[in-house]
Amino acid sequence: CTEKKKYNYCTDCESKNHSNDRCPNIWRSYITNSYNDNHVFAYPGNAIYCYNCARRGHYGDECVEYRTSKTPNINGSAFTGDNLPKELR
């Protein structure tokens, strides 16, 4: 039992849903634009919509409504507040 747990733990992103060699970070890595230190990211309030309930203000990964897609979202997706630039999270 403990062995199985160990196998399904990723030390890269501290997730219990996959092992290191199946970590989404392997492909979900972005080449980011470089900005100088005083660059301020604008909060994209008008472009934050929920793929699940269609409402504005939160992303689908954070939706509290009943999930309509029958396909599970185990590892999280691109549409989460965590994917905003650090300063805006």
């Binding site: 972005y30 080449i31 980011t32 634009n33 990211f41 604008a42 994209p44 472009a47 934050i48 992303y59 691109a78 549409f79 989460t80 507040g81 994917n83 905003l84 630039p85 805006l88």
Partner: peptide, 8 residues
């Protein structure tokens, strides 16, 4: 989220 903020 990354595209709309100009992060990438």
């Amino acid at each position: 989220p990354r595209v709309v903020t100009g992060s990438i």
